[in-house]
Amino acid sequence: MSKKALLGARGVHKSYVMGRSPVRVLRGASLSVQEGEFLAIMGSSGSGKSTLLHILGALDVPDKGSVTFRGEDIFGMGGAARRVMKSREIGFVFQFYHLLPECSVLENVLMPRMMLHSFWSWQSARRRARRETMELLGRVGLADRAKHRPNELSGGERQRVAIARALANQPSLLLADEPTGNLDAVIGSEILDLLAGLNRAGQTVVMVTHDARVASRAHRCVQLGDGIIREAGGPSGTDALAPVATREVTR
């Protein structure tokens, strides 16, 4: 049975101005992500992985090209519709966790849900949101840390909180930007186990990494180089990645 494309990028270009000269980061990157897939985007430092991920998640805007979500051009939507789509359908996990330091673990994870509510509607939704958030924290193993502040947590715990926050609105797509980049190998492996477990439960995950071992946990791996996407093992592929890159999504 053929899988439906959840996310698609076609001919995405993006350049930045560094000093006085423009740097072309993406030069027509194209990509398709199937529902339920665990995709790794590999590339060396500065290759534009994060830029691509930001564009896929509608955090950044491409200079040229299109990104579709469930077949709809996300940059063709109005700003408000795109924000709602982003809040409901896309969860972000960052390398540096990016938690709000003034808020507890529970509050950090509740934040995306709060964004979907007005002051008044939140009063009726709050109880249920708290209950579901506590369940979510239980799934990432942090139910007992709900009232802690981020600075009272280890790096791995913070990343779990970030993952829980990304899942708060039960998004279709989880985008992870170097999720283990700031963690040691053991903790990093735990985080990858968590992502893999979520994926097994049906969560579509797109992860960027420069680390081949991290990428090996994905179902499929693509290589970002010279601003375009190549299937790993292709022209500038990494041999080590070949088995992963050619592995079929089996779910």
Partner: peptide, 15 residues
Amino acid sequence: RDIGILKSLGASSAG
């Protein structure tokens, strides 16, 4: 940075 986080979570500029 917090503002960036909020925007990445779906907060609007007006928000």
